[in-house]
């Protein structure tokens, strides 16, 4: 068993500390994060248990974390860190775990719409530099095959002047492309 209290170890907890500075060993399981978390009921296990799993360092537990719904259902509302008596900064830790989960192809199937939405979003800004809402909805809908829900909203959004037909293009789109190439594209091929 790897020791999560050691910074040089290869455990997931060790990687979390290396990349985010968050020490899961500080958590004494008071449960305030889970009590305040608005989506803990949607998760397979709440934030305090997610940390516990990282603390044990068992490969089985680490696998459960990377394959969990929990990391994807986190809304980054930051309530957990606001109330944590030990200041264990859960949101950046979860951001890191999401990245790892994607990189290792372990993302939970229940999160597929959430991931599709994120990808459609980034795809939109990658092309134009700014978010093109109409394009985002069309792209997301075609990825998720859930055509009904927001298509109903579109005509009234349009009538209220809230949807633009054409995207806004920034001038230096090359710069944006370069930023994507040096970051996201570099890791998720």
């Amino acid at each position: 068993m790897s020791n999560p209290h050691h910074t040089e170890d290869n455990s997931l907890a060790g990687k979390v500390q290396k990349h985010t500075g968050v020490k899961v060993s500080r958590c004494y399981q008071c449960g305030k994060c889970s009590a305040g978390c608005p989506v803990s009921s949607d998760m397979d296990f709440p934030p305090s248990l997610l940390i516990r799993k990282l603390q044990t360092g068992f490969p089985k537990h680490e696998e459960e974390v990377l394959r969990s719904k929990s990391i994807w259902f986190c809304l980054t509302c930051e309530m957990c860190i606001a109330r944590c008596p030990m200041e264990v900064d859960i949101p950046p830790m979860i951001d890191y775990l999401r990245g790892e989960s994607m990189r290792l192809n372990k993302a939970n199937p229940a999160a597929k719409n959430i991931i599709r939405f994120h990808k459609a979003f980034l795809n939109s800004i990658q092309k134009t530099g700014r978010l093109y809402e109409m394009g985002l909805i069309v792209d997301y809908k075609s990825r998720s095959l859930n055509m009904v829900q927001d298509v109903v909203l579109a005509p009234s959004m349009f009538a209220k002047g809230k949807l633009k037909i054409l995207p806004e293009l920034i001038k230096d789109r090359k710069n944006i492309k370069q930023i994507f190439q040096k970051t996201l594209k570099n890791k998720h091929k």
């Binding site: 980054t76 951001d95 999401r98 994120h118 980034l122 530099g129 944006i176 970051t183």
Partner: peptide, 19 residues
């Protein structure tokens, strides 16, 4: 001048350096 999207939730959920 020529501002771009901040990346919002999508960027920080998927890639720290991009965000």
């Amino acid at each position: 001048p020529d501002w771009n999207c901040c990346g919002a939730t999508a960027a920080h959920n998927l890639d720290k350096e991009l965000s």
